[in-house]
Amino acid sequence: MTKTIAIVVPCHNEEENVPLFYQAVTKTFAEIEDYQPIFWYINDGSTDGTLQAIQTLQTQDTNVHYIDFSRGFGKEAGMYAGLQNAKGDLYTIMDADLQDPPTMIPEMLKEIQNGYEMVGAQRVNREGEPVIRSFFSRLFYKLINHISQTKIVPGARDFRLMTPPVVAAVLAMGERNRFSKGVFSWVGFKTKYLPYQNIERQHGKTSWSFSSLFRYSINGIVDYSDAPLTFVSWLGVASFVGATIALIFIIARAMIYGDPTPGWPSLVSIFLMIGGLQLFAIGIVGRYVGRIYLETKHRPIYVAREIK
Protein backbone atom coordinates (compact mmCIF):
# COMPACT_ATOMS: atom_id res chain seq x y z
CA MET A 1 0.00 0.00 0.00
CA THR A 2 1.35 3.41 -1.01
CA LYS A 3 2.06 5.74 1.90
CA THR A 4 2.03 9.53 1.80
CA ILE A 5 4.39 12.31 2.82
CA ALA A 6 2.65 15.62 3.44
CA ILE A 7 4.86 18.46 2.20
CA VAL A 8 4.17 21.84 3.82
CA VAL A 9 5.41 24.72 1.67
CA PRO A 10 5.07 28.28 3.04
CA CYS A 11 5.07 30.77 0.15
CA HIS A 12 5.42 34.52 -0.01
CA ASN A 13 5.81 35.94 -3.52
CA GLU A 14 7.09 32.66 -4.99
CA GLU A 15 5.21 32.74 -8.30
CA GLU A 16 8.14 31.51 -10.36
CA ASN A 17 9.34 28.97 -7.81
CA VAL A 18 6.01 27.22 -7.16
CA PRO A 19 6.00 25.12 -10.39
CA LEU A 20 9.77 24.54 -10.23
CA PHE A 21 9.45 23.22 -6.70
CA TYR A 22 6.60 20.92 -7.71
CA GLN A 23 8.62 19.52 -10.63
CA ALA A 24 11.73 18.96 -8.49
CA VAL A 25 9.82 17.15 -5.74
CA THR A 26 7.83 15.05 -8.23
CA LYS A 27 11.06 14.02 -9.93
CA THR A 28 12.53 12.96 -6.58
CA PHE A 29 9.47 10.91 -5.63
CA ALA A 30 9.57 9.09 -8.96
CA GLU A 31 12.59 7.28 -7.52
CA ILE A 32 11.02 6.59 -4.11
CA GLU A 33 9.05 3.37 -3.82
CA ASP A 34 5.85 3.11 -1.74
CA TYR A 35 5.56 6.85 -1.05
CA GLN A 36 3.81 9.69 -2.83
CA PRO A 37 3.83 13.43 -2.04
CA ILE A 38 0.82 15.42 -0.87
CA PHE A 39 1.54 19.12 -1.43
CA TRP A 40 0.23 21.77 0.96
CA TYR A 41 1.15 25.24 -0.29
CA ILE A 42 0.48 28.11 2.13
CA ASN A 43 0.01 31.46 0.42
CA ASP A 44 1.24 33.91 3.05
CA GLY A 45 -0.05 37.26 1.81
CA SER A 46 1.67 37.12 -1.59
CA THR A 47 1.20 40.14 -3.84
CA ASP A 48 2.24 38.43 -7.07
CA GLY A 49 0.73 35.44 -8.90
CA THR A 50 1.71 32.84 -6.32
CA LEU A 51 -1.88 31.78 -5.58
CA GLN A 52 -2.73 31.51 -9.27
CA ALA A 53 0.36 29.35 -9.84
CA ILE A 54 -0.72 27.03 -7.03
CA GLN A 55 -4.28 26.83 -8.36
CA THR A 56 -2.94 25.92 -11.78
CA LEU A 57 -1.02 23.01 -10.28
CA GLN A 58 -4.15 21.91 -8.42
CA THR A 59 -6.06 21.55 -11.68
CA GLN A 60 -3.32 19.18 -12.87
CA ASP A 61 -2.79 17.15 -9.69
CA THR A 62 -5.39 16.27 -7.05
CA ASN A 63 -2.56 15.84 -4.52
CA VAL A 64 -1.97 19.59 -4.54
CA HIS A 65 -3.74 21.58 -1.82
CA TYR A 66 -3.40 25.14 -0.58
CA ILE A 67 -4.23 27.48 2.28
CA ASP A 68 -4.75 31.09 1.33
CA PHE A 69 -4.14 33.43 4.28
CA SER A 70 -6.29 36.55 4.62
CA ARG A 71 -3.02 38.51 4.90
CA GLY A 72 0.64 37.87 5.62
CA PHE A 73 1.00 36.13 8.98
CA GLY A 74 4.63 35.03 8.54
CA LYS A 75 6.42 31.77 7.86
CA GLU A 76 5.90 30.47 11.39
CA ALA A 77 2.13 30.72 11.00
CA GLY A 78 2.41 29.11 7.57
CA MET A 79 4.23 26.08 8.94
CA TYR A 80 1.72 25.73 11.76
CA ALA A 81 -1.25 25.98 9.39
CA GLY A 82 0.22 23.41 7.03
CA LEU A 83 0.96 20.87 9.74
CA GLN A 84 -2.46 21.46 11.27
CA ASN A 85 -4.38 20.78 8.04
CA ALA A 86 -2.21 18.25 6.23
CA LYS A 87 -2.70 14.52 6.58
CA GLY A 88 0.00 11.98 5.85
CA ASP A 89 2.03 9.06 7.11
CA LEU A 90 5.02 11.42 7.40
CA TYR A 91 5.39 15.19 7.30
CA THR A 92 8.02 17.58 6.00
CA ILE A 93 8.42 21.35 5.75
CA MET A 94 10.24 22.85 2.76
CA ASP A 95 10.89 26.29 1.29
CA ALA A 96 9.51 26.91 -2.19
CA ASP A 97 12.76 28.53 -3.36
CA LEU A 98 14.51 25.12 -3.53
CA GLN A 99 17.11 26.06 -0.93
CA ASP A 100 15.90 22.88 0.75
CA PRO A 101 17.03 20.19 -1.71
CA PRO A 102 14.31 17.58 -2.42
CA THR A 103 17.09 15.08 -3.17
CA MET A 104 17.64 14.79 0.59
CA ILE A 105 14.20 13.26 1.14
CA PRO A 106 15.23 9.66 0.29
CA GLU A 107 18.10 9.84 2.79
CA MET A 108 15.80 11.33 5.43
CA LEU A 109 13.27 8.59 4.77
CA LYS A 110 15.96 5.97 5.21
CA GLU A 111 16.87 7.38 8.64
CA ILE A 112 13.17 7.39 9.64
CA GLN A 113 13.03 3.71 8.70
CA ASN A 114 16.13 3.18 10.85
CA GLY A 115 14.21 4.33 13.91
CA TYR A 116 14.58 8.11 14.03
CA GLU A 117 11.41 10.10 14.65
CA MET A 118 12.65 13.38 13.19
CA VAL A 119 15.37 13.92 10.60
CA GLY A 120 16.41 17.49 9.85
CA ALA A 121 18.69 19.25 7.39
CA GLN A 122 21.72 21.11 8.76
CA ARG A 123 23.37 23.72 6.58
CA VAL A 124 27.12 23.47 7.16
CA ASN A 125 28.14 26.64 5.32
CA ARG A 126 26.55 29.94 4.34
CA GLU A 127 28.21 30.66 1.01
CA GLY A 128 26.46 33.32 -1.01
CA GLU A 129 25.16 35.19 2.04
CA PRO A 130 26.47 38.57 3.25
CA VAL A 131 29.41 38.20 5.63
CA ILE A 132 27.75 40.33 8.32
CA ARG A 133 24.64 38.13 8.29
CA SER A 134 26.74 34.97 8.62
CA PHE A 135 28.68 36.49 11.51
CA PHE A 136 25.57 37.42 13.48
CA SER A 137 24.01 34.04 12.71
CA ARG A 138 26.97 32.22 14.29
CA LEU A 139 26.90 34.67 17.20
CA PHE A 140 23.20 34.00 17.76
CA TYR A 141 23.64 30.22 17.94
CA LYS A 142 26.53 30.56 20.39
CA LEU A 143 24.57 32.96 22.58
CA ILE A 144 21.28 31.10 22.71
CA ASN A 145 22.94 27.72 23.32
CA HIS A 146 24.89 29.31 26.17
CA ILE A 147 21.91 30.85 27.94
CA SER A 148 19.10 28.43 27.09
CA GLN A 149 18.43 24.89 28.25
CA THR A 150 16.86 24.16 24.86
CA LYS A 151 19.82 23.49 22.61
CA ILE A 152 19.48 24.54 18.98
CA VAL A 153 21.67 22.92 16.33
CA PRO A 154 23.66 25.60 14.43
CA GLY A 155 22.58 25.77 10.82
CA ALA A 156 19.46 23.67 11.41
CA ARG A 157 16.77 24.32 8.84
CA ASP A 158 13.00 24.04 9.14
CA PHE A 159 13.34 21.37 6.44
CA ARG A 160 12.86 18.08 8.26
CA LEU A 161 10.98 14.79 7.96
CA MET A 162 8.74 14.02 10.94
CA THR A 163 6.54 11.22 12.20
CA PRO A 164 2.93 11.95 13.30
CA PRO A 165 3.77 11.93 17.05
CA VAL A 166 6.35 14.68 16.48
CA VAL A 167 3.85 16.79 14.53
CA ALA A 168 1.22 16.28 17.23
CA ALA A 169 3.69 17.50 19.86
CA VAL A 170 4.60 20.57 17.76
CA LEU A 171 0.93 21.46 17.26
CA ALA A 172 0.27 20.99 20.99
CA MET A 173 2.56 23.97 21.64
CA GLY A 174 -0.08 26.57 20.98
CA GLU A 175 1.84 29.77 21.66
CA ARG A 176 1.05 32.59 19.23
CA ASN A 177 4.63 33.86 19.01
CA ARG A 178 6.40 30.86 17.58
CA PHE A 179 10.12 30.21 17.14
CA SER A 180 10.22 27.00 15.12
CA LYS A 181 13.85 26.10 15.75
CA GLY A 182 13.18 26.22 19.46
CA VAL A 183 9.88 24.33 19.12
CA PHE A 184 11.46 21.46 17.20
CA SER A 185 14.28 21.19 19.71
CA TRP A 186 12.05 21.50 22.76
CA VAL A 187 9.68 18.64 21.84
CA GLY A 188 12.61 16.22 21.81
CA PHE A 189 12.16 12.80 20.17
CA LYS A 190 14.89 10.76 18.55
CA THR A 191 16.42 13.22 16.09
CA LYS A 192 19.21 13.21 13.54
CA TYR A 193 20.53 16.03 11.37
CA LEU A 194 21.95 15.51 7.89
CA PRO A 195 24.57 18.04 6.71
CA TYR A 196 24.41 19.73 3.31
CA GLN A 197 26.03 22.62 1.48
CA ASN A 198 24.19 25.91 1.13
CA ILE A 199 22.09 26.31 -2.01
CA GLU A 200 21.06 29.70 -3.38
CA ARG A 201 17.39 30.36 -4.08
CA GLN A 202 16.17 29.85 -7.65
CA HIS A 203 14.18 33.04 -8.27
CA GLY A 204 13.14 36.18 -6.45
CA LYS A 205 14.53 37.74 -3.31
CA THR A 206 14.27 36.53 0.25
CA SER A 207 11.70 38.31 2.43
CA TRP A 208 14.08 38.02 5.40
CA SER A 209 15.92 41.31 5.85
CA PHE A 210 18.67 41.78 8.41
CA SER A 211 16.29 43.68 10.71
CA SER A 212 13.61 40.96 10.50
CA LEU A 213 16.19 38.28 11.23
CA PHE A 214 17.43 40.31 14.20
CA ARG A 215 13.89 40.60 15.59
CA TYR A 216 13.39 36.88 15.01
CA SER A 217 16.57 36.16 16.97
CA ILE A 218 15.46 38.38 19.86
CA ASN A 219 12.13 36.56 19.92
CA GLY A 220 13.95 33.24 20.09
CA ILE A 221 16.06 34.38 23.04
CA VAL A 222 13.04 35.76 24.91
CA ASP A 223 10.96 32.63 24.21
CA TYR A 224 13.56 30.11 25.32
CA SER A 225 15.62 31.81 28.01
CA ASP A 226 15.12 33.95 31.09
CA ALA A 227 18.82 34.82 31.12
CA PRO A 228 18.17 38.47 30.15
CA LEU A 229 16.08 38.89 33.31
CA THR A 230 18.86 37.36 35.39
CA PHE A 231 21.34 39.65 33.67
CA VAL A 232 19.25 42.69 34.54
CA SER A 233 19.11 41.61 38.20
CA TRP A 234 22.88 41.29 38.42
CA LEU A 235 23.28 44.55 36.53
CA GLY A 236 21.19 46.25 39.21
CA VAL A 237 23.36 44.73 41.95
CA ALA A 238 26.56 45.80 40.18
CA SER A 239 25.17 49.30 39.69
CA PHE A 240 24.29 49.58 43.38
CA VAL A 241 27.71 48.34 44.48
CA GLY A 242 29.45 50.67 42.04
CA ALA A 243 27.42 53.66 43.20
CA THR A 244 28.14 52.81 46.86
CA ILE A 245 31.90 52.58 46.23
CA ALA A 246 31.83 55.87 44.32
CA LEU A 247 29.92 57.54 47.17
CA ILE A 248 32.42 56.29 49.77
CA PHE A 249 35.29 57.53 47.60
CA ILE A 250 33.72 60.98 47.17
CA ILE A 251 33.08 61.34 50.92
CA ALA A 252 36.60 60.19 51.81
CA ARG A 253 38.16 62.57 49.30
CA ALA A 254 36.11 65.48 50.64
CA MET A 255 37.16 64.69 54.23
CA ILE A 256 40.84 64.49 53.33
CA TYR A 257 41.27 67.14 50.65
CA GLY A 258 38.12 69.15 51.01
CA ASP A 259 35.70 69.89 48.20
CA PRO A 260 36.50 73.27 46.70
CA THR A 261 34.35 72.71 43.61
CA PRO A 262 30.61 71.91 43.45
CA GLY A 263 29.82 68.21 43.01
CA TRP A 264 26.97 68.53 40.56
CA PRO A 265 28.89 67.12 37.52
CA SER A 266 29.57 63.86 39.32
CA LEU A 267 26.01 63.71 40.63
CA VAL A 268 24.55 64.29 37.18
CA SER A 269 26.81 61.58 35.73
CA ILE A 270 25.71 59.10 38.40
CA PHE A 271 22.04 59.96 37.88
CA LEU A 272 22.34 59.51 34.14
CA MET A 273 24.12 56.20 34.59
CA ILE A 274 21.54 54.86 37.04
CA GLY A 275 18.69 56.19 34.91
CA GLY A 276 20.09 54.56 31.78
CA LEU A 277 20.45 51.22 33.56
CA GLN A 278 16.89 51.45 34.82
CA LEU A 279 15.51 52.18 31.35
CA PHE A 280 17.56 49.31 29.94
CA ALA A 281 16.21 46.96 32.61
CA ILE A 282 12.64 48.13 32.05
CA GLY A 283 13.07 47.54 28.34
CA ILE A 284 14.11 43.91 28.87
CA VAL A 285 11.33 43.25 31.36
CA GLY A 286 8.94 44.96 28.95
CA ARG A 287 9.80 42.43 26.24
CA TYR A 288 8.71 39.58 28.48
CA VAL A 289 5.60 41.41 29.69
CA GLY A 290 4.72 42.20 26.08
CA ARG A 291 4.95 38.53 25.13
CA ILE A 292 2.67 37.63 28.02
CA TYR A 293 0.21 40.34 26.96
CA LEU A 294 0.06 39.05 23.38
CA GLU A 295 -0.42 35.45 24.52
CA THR A 296 -3.30 36.38 26.83
CA LYS A 297 -5.23 37.84 23.89
CA HIS A 298 -5.67 34.28 22.55
CA ARG A 299 -5.75 35.49 18.98
CA PRO A 300 -5.59 32.81 16.27
CA ILE A 301 -2.15 32.07 14.85
CA TYR A 302 -3.52 32.64 11.35
CA VAL A 303 -6.73 33.45 9.49
CA ALA A 304 -7.41 31.55 6.27
CA ARG A 305 -9.45 32.98 3.41
CA GLU A 306 -9.65 29.58 1.76
CA ILE A 307 -8.47 26.02 2.44
CA LYS A 308 -8.71 23.75 -0.53
Rank of each mutant, 00 (worst) to 15 (best):
M1L: 05
T2Q: 00
T2H: 00
T2D: 03
I5W: 00
V8E: 00
H12S: 02
E14S: 01
V18T: 03
V18Y: 06
T26K: 14
I32V: 14
D34K: 10
Y35A: 04
Y35L: 03
Y35E: 01
Q36T: 11
F39P: 05
Y41R: 06
I42D: 09
G45R: 12
G45D: 08
S46V: 09
T47L: 08
L51G: 04
T56F: 02
T59C: 04
H65G: 02
I67Y: 06
F69R: 02
K75I: 11
G78V: 06
A81H: 08
L83R: 08
L83A: 05
D89C: 03
M94T: 07
D100L: 01
P102N: 08
P106Y: 01
E117C: 05
G120N: 12
G120I: 11
G120S: 13
R123H: 08
F136D: 09
R138M: 09
L139S: 10
I147H: 03
S148A: 14
Q149N: 15
T150K: 08
P154K: 11
G155M: 13
F159K: 03
R160T: 10
T163A: 10
P165V: 11
V167S: 07
A168E: 15
A172F: 04
M173N: 13
F179R: 03
G188W: 09
Y196P: 07
R201W: 02
R201K: 14
R201L: 12
G204F: 01
G204S: 03
S211F: 08
S211I: 11
I218T: 11
N219I: 01
I221D: 06
Y224G: 02
S225G: 06
L229D: 07
T230H: 14
F231E: 07
L235H: 11
G236L: 13
A238H: 06
V241Y: 03
A243F: 11
I245F: 13
I245T: 09
R253L: 13
I256K: 12
P262G: 04
W264V: 05
F271C: 12
I274V: 15
L277Y: 13
I284R: 09
T296K: 15
T296F: 10
I307A: 05
